[in-house]
Design a binder for these strands. Structure first.
Lengths: 225, 225
DNA sequence: TAGATTGTTAATCGATTAACAATC
DNA sequence: TAGATTGTTAATCGATTAACAATC
């Protein structure tokens, strides 16, 4: 990336959070999120500092690029030492503007839904499951994780009252599109899809589909060749 | 809204063997895998042809790039019509050299393990769960999906007899590194990690860590800005 | 034919890397 | 100091895109 002042780089230094800066490029935002994952776990394990080389070992992003991604926003590291894990976590959270608490509505109280509700993989990054829904009336009322399973009729009220920003679909493929429609109608703009369905949603809604098999195919290709 | 910039999977490519045919670049292999996911589902839904624009809508990969990725390997499309779904699936499988059957050993018979064993998300792409392991002696012997849960002592024998190429870790974070070590010792070269652990493995072993929270952070960034 | 969509080119943009001075 | 690691530059390589002729 050039530093030509006439051509503002995509990654513009964000002067001490709060100042409006340009939107990050897709690649930078994706990489910063990845660094955050590793840093969060490293912090849990009691690691206090981490070098760009160590981050590279875990993320498979080139270490020069890591330093470059970070130095665009400030001088977070100490030469000869590395980066302070805890402070880097909060710096990146600030850059990504995802420092707060974000509420999730979970759909599906089957095995996958229970696994998600019982995991802290979301909680560690500030996401909280505030409601669990299931279409099966037999499951409504059961307690899963810290939540009682609710009926779909409550969706609109819950989204409004709890400020739900993400809907997670842990349901059979056949049910996914209908629930996506409900979420869109309730005003939720981000859908995380664990089913295999190809969801059709309005352009302003973001869908992320989990695809472990795709990741495996990819890994396999490099293993076989 | 564009969601995924093709999150480069966290995979460590095995060191390239001598010369041989040109290996696909990381990006091309990742994108082809994604096309395969959409095509597989489109095929299930009875779709016979698909245009690069439709593929783009579902993968968020630019349609020109899709045509370019594909045309590098042959003229698979019909102008004015699009691509035949079924034939494109088999062409891409050939390109990725993952057309056969690949055997998986699954670790963890908890909610996540059961969800995986009961899903056809892997089966649709030629991956078959041939064994389930759990460290909990109380779970050994239970039937999950089509498998009886086994004791870890059987690992070496199963890997050899069943030609296991992938180990999937659906276990608590604290157990993941130990099992990764066992898998490496048994000769498995690809590990799919659903825990939060940062796994240390030899360079020839590929680790993919599932990180839904990272994907959500990324989606959230573009939602908020 | 008319409309749609592929295959391909050329230009631009972003990622990657080696190298190294700065400095902890 | 000596060793380590950041921050930064400059050069290269590969990815991405708009545009459009070819053609179904």
């Amino acid at each position: 990336m050039t530093l030509d002042p006439l051509n503002p780089p995509m990654v513009r230094p964000a002067p001490s959070a709060g100042g409006a800066s340009e939107r990050l490029s897709l690649g930078v935002a994706a990489r910063l999120s990845r660094y955050l994952q590793v840093l969060t776990q490293a912090k849990k394990m009691g690691k206090e500092t981490i070098s760009s080389q160590e981050l590279s070992d875990y993320t498979h992003v080139n270490s020069t690029q890591i330093r470059r991604d970070l130095s665009g926003f400030g001088k977070f590291g100490k030469r000869g030492v590395g980066y302070n894990v805890e402070s880097l976590v909060s710096q990146i959270r600030k850059i990504l503007r995802t420092a707060g608490q974000h509420n999730i509505a979970l759909f599906g109280a089957g095995h996958l839904g229970r696994a998600i509700a019982g995991s802290d993989i979301f909680a560690d990054h500030g996401f909280r499951v505030v409601a669990i829904f299931d279409v099966d009336p037999d499951k409504v009322g059961l307690v899963v994780g810290a939540q009682r399973v609710r009926h779909l009729d409550d969706l609109h009220a819950v989204v409004e009252e709890e400020d739900v920003v993400v809907g997670v679909l842990a349901v059979p493929t056949a049910d996914a599109q209908g629930l996506a429609d409900d979420l869109v109608a309730a005003g939720v703009k981000i859908i995380f899809n664990y089913s295999e369905a190809l969801l059709d949603v309005p352009p302003e809604v973001a869908v992320h589909t989990s695809s472990p098999a795709v990741d495996l195919l990819y890994a396999l290709y490099f293993h076989l060749t």
